[in-house]
Nucleic acid binder design. Structure first.
Lengths: 100, 100
DNA sequence: TGCCCTTATGCGCATTAACGCAAATGAAGA
DNA sequence: TCTTCATTTGCGTTAATGCGCATAAGGGCA
């Protein structure tokens, strides 16, 4: 089990949170796609994904030149609950922004 | 609505998270009690509580010399869900620690 | 007013974490 | 092997954050 504080620290960063929102579709996404979509530099995105991986939020897989990231499937329930709640919160924040 | 990232940043600190766990009993707790229970310095605890207040996690009330903090009652549902999930996660982490 | 308890705040220091750049690594294809 | 694309990593810089110390501010009480 990752320390709760470490998990929260990983989530408390805009680019990482946005990346999780993209990974929520259950699919695999390479760094190059994430960096383009989120407007982050290549090295930055790589490091951000490493942070998410370190706390067990995502898994990665080599596929030829690409590294495919996806939401970790076998997350502990209590951790998954936090992720779900955080994503839902970021949804409401997003909705409020677009409604304004 | 507080930015999700700000909320998560506020939660991603051991002393603040521990303070929230104490405030979970629904009661009011002064800074002096929190600082003693959590072993934090006075100025540190005061600032930590200010952070929690700034993101809307707690409210404070002057009571003579004391300032009584408590969990904010009228938290937005999506925010409350995050708090509940985070506290539950910190519970499991705590249980694992004491069981070890 | 003077004293004491509680809390907040200004300030400087140390640590952490993000960033950009450049170089290294891994893999595919000519 | 050489080139190219994708990703990682080392490094120096900078911004953010936590901390302690000292001080100010708020409030009760003699």
């Amino acid at each position: 089990m990752t320390e709760p504080v470490a998990l929260l620290s990983a989530l408390a960063e805009p680019t990482r949170l946005a990346a999780l929102r993209l990974l929520r579709d259950g699919g695999e996404h390479c760094v190059c796609e994430l960096m383009r979509t989120l407007g982050a530099s290549q090295s930055r995105m790589s490091r951000h994904m490493a942070v998410l991986k370190a706390v067990g939020l995502v898994t990665d897989r080599r596929d030829a030149q690409w590294v495919r990231y996806r939401l970790r499937a076998d997350m502990p329930p209590s951790m998954s609950a936090v992720v779900q709640a955080v994503l839902a919160l970021s949804d409401t924040a997003e909705n409020l922004r677009s409604a304004a």
